[in-house]
Simulated assay, not measured.
Amino acid sequence: MAEEKVKDISQEAENVILRLKEDGGGKLVLTTSQIRKFLASVNALTNKVDVYHAQNPGAVELSPTLASAVKYLKVQLAYQAGREPKKVKPFVETARLKERIDGIGTDLRAYEDFAHYVEALVAYHKFYGGED
Protein backbone atom coordinates (compact mmCIF):
# COMPACT_ATOMS: atom_id res chain seq x y z
CA MET A 1 0.00 0.00 0.00
CA ALA A 2 2.88 2.41 0.70
CA GLU A 3 4.06 1.94 -2.88
CA GLU A 4 0.64 3.06 -4.15
CA LYS A 5 0.91 6.25 -2.05
CA VAL A 6 4.26 7.09 -3.66
CA LYS A 7 2.71 6.65 -7.11
CA ASP A 8 -0.05 9.08 -6.16
CA ILE A 9 2.51 11.64 -4.97
CA SER A 10 4.47 11.23 -8.17
CA GLN A 11 1.40 11.57 -10.37
CA GLU A 12 0.19 14.62 -8.49
CA ALA A 13 3.61 16.27 -8.85
CA GLU A 14 3.67 15.51 -12.56
CA ASN A 15 0.17 16.96 -12.97
CA VAL A 16 1.21 20.16 -11.18
CA ILE A 17 4.18 20.67 -13.49
CA LEU A 18 2.11 19.92 -16.59
CA ARG A 19 -0.54 22.42 -15.44
CA LEU A 20 2.14 25.08 -14.90
CA LYS A 21 3.57 24.37 -18.34
CA GLU A 22 0.13 24.68 -19.90
CA ASP A 23 -0.54 27.94 -18.02
CA GLY A 24 2.81 29.24 -19.29
CA GLY A 25 1.82 28.69 -22.90
CA GLY A 26 3.83 25.50 -23.22
CA LYS A 27 6.83 26.83 -21.32
CA LEU A 28 7.77 26.59 -17.67
CA VAL A 29 8.46 30.14 -16.46
CA LEU A 30 9.68 28.94 -13.08
CA THR A 31 13.38 28.10 -13.16
CA THR A 32 14.85 24.98 -11.64
CA SER A 33 17.06 27.05 -9.36
CA GLN A 34 14.00 28.82 -7.93
CA ILE A 35 12.42 25.58 -6.77
CA ARG A 36 15.72 23.95 -5.85
CA LYS A 37 16.15 26.63 -3.14
CA PHE A 38 13.04 25.29 -1.47
CA LEU A 39 14.15 21.70 -2.05
CA ALA A 40 17.44 22.51 -0.29
CA SER A 41 15.48 23.69 2.76
CA VAL A 42 13.36 20.55 2.70
CA ASN A 43 16.45 18.35 2.34
CA ALA A 44 18.18 20.05 5.27
CA LEU A 45 15.10 19.43 7.41
CA THR A 46 14.84 15.86 6.15
CA ASN A 47 18.40 15.24 7.35
CA LYS A 48 17.36 16.39 10.84
CA VAL A 49 14.24 14.23 10.69
CA ASP A 50 16.36 11.22 9.67
CA VAL A 51 18.71 11.76 12.63
CA TYR A 52 15.73 12.09 14.97
CA HIS A 53 14.17 8.92 13.56
CA ALA A 54 17.46 7.01 13.91
CA GLN A 55 17.67 8.09 17.56
CA ASN A 56 13.97 7.30 18.13
CA PRO A 57 13.32 4.23 15.92
CA GLY A 58 9.72 3.70 17.01
CA ALA A 59 8.71 7.33 16.63
CA VAL A 60 5.68 8.10 14.51
CA GLU A 61 5.56 11.78 15.45
CA LEU A 62 8.02 14.61 14.93
CA SER A 63 9.50 16.32 17.96
CA PRO A 64 8.04 19.75 18.76
CA THR A 65 11.25 21.34 17.45
CA LEU A 66 11.02 19.49 14.14
CA ALA A 67 7.28 20.19 13.82
CA SER A 68 8.06 23.88 14.30
CA ALA A 69 10.77 23.68 11.62
CA VAL A 70 8.21 22.14 9.25
CA LYS A 71 5.86 25.09 9.84
CA TYR A 72 8.77 27.47 9.17
CA LEU A 73 8.96 26.12 5.62
CA LYS A 74 5.87 28.26 4.95
CA VAL A 75 7.89 31.37 5.78
CA GLN A 76 10.55 30.32 3.29
CA LEU A 77 7.88 29.75 0.65
CA ALA A 78 6.34 33.16 1.33
CA TYR A 79 9.73 34.80 0.94
CA GLN A 80 10.46 33.07 -2.38
CA ALA A 81 6.95 33.81 -3.67
CA GLY A 82 7.32 37.45 -2.63
CA ARG A 83 10.61 37.75 -4.50
CA GLU A 84 9.22 36.23 -7.69
CA PRO A 85 5.42 36.61 -7.52
CA LYS A 86 4.80 35.89 -11.20
CA LYS A 87 6.92 32.73 -11.21
CA VAL A 88 7.05 31.21 -7.73
CA LYS A 89 3.61 32.12 -6.39
CA PRO A 90 1.69 30.17 -9.08
CA PHE A 91 3.94 27.17 -8.35
CA VAL A 92 3.28 27.38 -4.59
CA GLU A 93 -0.47 27.70 -5.16
CA THR A 94 -0.80 25.03 -7.86
CA ALA A 95 1.29 22.55 -5.85
CA ARG A 96 -0.72 23.45 -2.73
CA LEU A 97 2.53 23.53 -0.74
CA LYS A 98 1.23 25.63 2.15
CA GLU A 99 -1.78 23.35 2.62
CA ARG A 100 0.46 20.29 2.51
CA ILE A 101 2.74 21.77 5.16
CA ASP A 102 -0.28 22.53 7.35
CA GLY A 103 -1.42 18.93 6.93
CA ILE A 104 1.81 17.50 8.35
CA GLY A 105 1.37 18.60 11.95
CA THR A 106 3.57 16.21 13.92
CA ASP A 107 3.06 13.17 11.65
CA LEU A 108 6.45 11.76 10.67
CA ARG A 109 5.08 9.79 7.72
CA ALA A 110 3.21 12.83 6.41
CA TYR A 111 6.48 14.77 6.47
CA GLU A 112 8.26 12.01 4.56
CA ASP A 113 5.48 12.03 1.95
CA PHE A 114 5.78 15.82 1.67
CA ALA A 115 9.55 15.61 1.17
CA HIS A 116 9.06 13.01 -1.58
CA TYR A 117 6.43 15.24 -3.19
CA VAL A 118 8.83 18.20 -3.31
CA GLU A 119 11.55 15.98 -4.81
CA ALA A 120 9.06 14.78 -7.43
CA LEU A 121 8.09 18.36 -8.29
CA VAL A 122 11.72 19.26 -8.94
CA ALA A 123 12.30 16.08 -10.96
CA TYR A 124 9.24 16.57 -13.18
CA HIS A 125 10.06 20.24 -13.60
CA LYS A 126 13.45 19.28 -14.99
CA PHE A 127 11.96 16.41 -17.05
CA TYR A 128 9.44 18.71 -18.74
CA GLY A 129 12.02 21.28 -19.75
CA GLY A 130 12.45 23.51 -16.74
CA GLU A 131 15.48 25.70 -17.26
CA ASP A 132 18.16 26.52 -14.71
Rank of each mutant, 00 (worst) to 15 (best):
17 I>P: 00
18 L>Y: 10
98 K>H: 14
19 R>N: 11
107 D>V: 10
94 T>H: 03
86 K>M: 09
64 P>N: 08
109 R>T: 14
71 K>P: 00
95 A>E: 09
74 K>D: 09
51 V>K: 07
105 G>P: 00
67 A>S: 13
73 L>C: 05
101 I>K: 01
38 F>V: 08
54 A>R: 10
7 K>L: 11
19 R>W: 12
38 F>W: 08
109 R>P: 02
128 Y>H: 11
56 N>S: 13
48 K>H: 06
112 E>K: 02
9 I>M: 01
57 P>G: 03
105 G>I: 12
120 A>E: 03
56 N>W: 14
43 N>T: 10
4 E>I: 14
21 K>Q: 06
50 D>C: 10
105 G>E: 09
39 L>C: 03
87 K>T: 08
4 E>F: 08
123 A>I: 07
30 L>S: 03
43 N>C: 01
80 Q>L: 15
17 I>S: 08
54 A>M: 11
19 R>P: 01
105 G>K: 06
91 F>D: 02
60 V>W: 13
36 R>I: 07
71 K>G: 06
17 I>D: 13
70 V>S: 09
59 A>R: 12
85 P>Q: 04
45 L>G: 05
5 K>G: 04
47 N>Q: 15
11 Q>T: 10
87 K>Q: 11
69 A>P: 00
56 N>Q: 08
11 Q>E: 14
57 P>F: 12
64 P>M: 02
41 S>F: 11
32 T>M: 05
28 L>S: 03
116 H>A: 06
37 K>W: 03
80 Q>N: 15
132 D>F: 00
18 L>Q: 11
10 S>Q: 05
33 S>R: 14
42 V>R: 01
130 G>M: 02
50 D>W: 14
121 L>N: 00
9 I>H: 01
113 D>Y: 09
49 V>F: 10
33 S>H: 06
82 G>V: 06
7 K>E: 15
106 T>A: 13
131 E>Q: 13
61 E>L: 11
58 G>D: 15
95 A>D: 04
97 L>F: 08
68 S>G: 06
81 A>M: 07
2 A>H: 13
6 V>Y: 06
96 R>P: 02
130 G>Q: 07
15 N>L: 03
110 A>M: 09
8 D>S: 12
118 V>S: 01
36 R>F: 04
48 K>G: 05
130 G>I: 03
28 L>M: 02
99 E>K: 00
117 Y>H: 03
10 S>V: 11
117 Y>F: 05
52 Y>V: 10
124 Y>C: 00
94 T>E: 12
127 F>H: 11
75 V>M: 08
89 K>V: 06
49 V>P: 00
66 L>E: 05
125 H>T: 04
122 V>G: 01
94 T>C: 01
63 S>V: 14
47 N>A: 15
1 M>N: 13
85 P>N: 08
111 Y>V: 07
78 A>G: 09
22 E>G: 02
73 L>G: 01
73 L>N: 09
86 K>H: 09
114 F>M: 00
27 K>T: 11
27 K>R: 14
126 K>D: 02
58 G>L: 12
68 S>A: 13
87 K>D: 05
45 L>S: 04
67 A>F: 01
11 Q>K: 07
123 A>G: 06
34 Q>S: 09
65 T>I: 15
65 T>E: 15
34 Q>L: 05
41 S>E: 13
